[in-house]
Write a protein that binds this DNA or RNA. Sequence first.
DNA 1: ATACCGACCTGTCAGC
DNA 2: TGCTGACAGGTCGGTA
Length: 284
Amino acid sequence: MPELPEVETIVRGLARRVVADTITSVWIGSRPQPLKSPAAKIARTLDGAKIVSVHRAGKHIVFALERRAAQPASTVAPRRPAPASASAHWVVHLGMTGRLVVCEPGVEIARHTHLVASLASGRELRFVDPRMFGKLSVHDAGFDPGGVEPLDVSEENFVALFRGRKTPIKSALLNQKLVRGVGNIYADESLFRAGLRPRRRASTITRAELGKLHESVREVLREAIALGGSSISDYVDADGEEGFFQLQHRVYGREGEPCLVCKAPIRRVVLAGRSSHYCRNCQK
DNA sequence: ATACCGACCTGTCAGC
DNA sequence: TGCTGACAGGTCGGTA
């Protein structure tokens, strides 16, 4: 479901609600599919941890946790040093249908709830994911999913990613090891704005066109974040609010409808197993 | 290296 | 009303 703008919106909402809160207990469901670390390790890492920050890395949500180290057994410590603490990261990928919700404990547990973290503030943070394409993991060291952040990368570094690649440009954009956070909707929308067909081989794209693509990707992502992401069927952010960028889609989901620039019908083809939408006139 | 495909899962919606 | 198939925002692994 969520791509970079949706994850960014969710992260901002979560940060408002749970930063500085402490996890007081953890319940994990019986379905192993979403768990990419052992359940016991996830529970052990989360339980008692303070949430220091929430941020986004590509489509991943990263909770920075701080755990107080076990108190020394000695009781007489007149001048105790600052309490030792250990840091860890809880990483959530929402897959297609994952949601993180913060709610009161009394709220009915939704179907397909896989994790519930009780918070010291009295609320609960829940992970719900019907299709179970989402992933939960914990990491003692830092977490780096690879790829560059499209909103941070320079034009020069962006252009270099595609040099010499024969793969279709859309496949390259979807490759999270190159650019992280761009998914099917924003790939199609960016390529439309850049005037590039999805199947165009990356290696045949000129420097100027790649510069335009760099600009288009960033523009689309920034506009989508400003509107809270795209709500196609059931996406809502951490506050339960829908996004509005779907109203700005120029090609995605518009098969057969007239191009907003030239009126030619928008085409839909399948590329790498994904629906791909483009205008034959406006994209080369 | 690359490209296509199915697999992983459940839910929804259109069409018959 | 109910069945069937297509499709869905994402990734991964196998095979040519």
